[in-house]
């Protein structure tokens, strides 16, 4: 089934970023993605060609992560050699600060808003795919997403003036 493999391969970069967003660790993201890929391959006979693979993978990643991922860093030894660090090897100090601040705000979101935000913005799922992955209506996807974005934005506005003082607290 070459088409299955192709779809799987195309889904993996987005899934890996999503896995990183969940785990915040390259090696654990690698393990989580590999785990999802293995499960998908084992269950490929259940896959129907008209059904997109990505929501299924995203759902798996989230479930595995939530159920306490015990993958125990199977591939720590390869994670750093394999990782493509080039794109983010040298962020400017401001970018690094802004990015760290953004992640902190994302973490502060209510979990149901964060789930939707990460699937849409990081994994790149459509609203319909996100609805499938999280088993919620598409209207709920839209409202949670706009609430998440509004919360991030209002935090940005509130905190913008104190950026200078916060510099000291960031290591």
């Amino acid at each position: 089934m070459p088409r299955f493999r192709q779809e799987l391969k195309e889904a993996l970069p987005g899934l890996w970023r999503y896995a990183f967003a969940l785990t915040r660790d390259r090696a654990r993201a690698d393990d989580l993605v590999q785990d999802c890929a293995e499960r998908a391959l084992r269950k490929r006979h259940l896959w129907q060609e008209d059904r997109p693979l990505r929501p299924w993978l995203a759902k798996m990643a989230l479930n595995i992560h939530r159920n306490g991922y015990k993958g125990a860093a199977r591939h720590l030894h390869v994670a750093y050699e394999d990782a493509d660090l080039s794109a983010h090897a040298t962020p400017s100090p401001e970018q690094g600060l802004e990015a760290a601040e953004m992640l902190r705000r994302v973490d502060a979101l209510p979990i149901e808003q964060r789930d939707v935000l990460l699937l849409v913005v990081i994994d790149g799922l459509s609203y319909a795919e996100t609805a499938t992955a999280l088993d919620i209506p598409i209207g709920t996807v839209m409202s949670r997403l706009s609430r998440a974005r509004a919360a991030l934005k209002s935090e940005l506005k509130q905190e913008a003036p104190v950026t200078g003082t916060r510099l000291r607290s960031v290591t």
């Binding site: 390259r26 993605v33 890929a37 391959l41 953004m102 992640l103 913005v121």
Partner: peptide, 20 residues
């Protein structure tokens, strides 16, 4: 900003091969 806060892994083929 959110996207830039998370790294990318451009080559997923090794993960796929290990899974296979």
């Amino acid at each position: 900003v959110l996207r830039s806060a998370l790294p990318e892994l451009s080559d997923v083929s090794q993960i796929l091969e290990r899974a296979e």
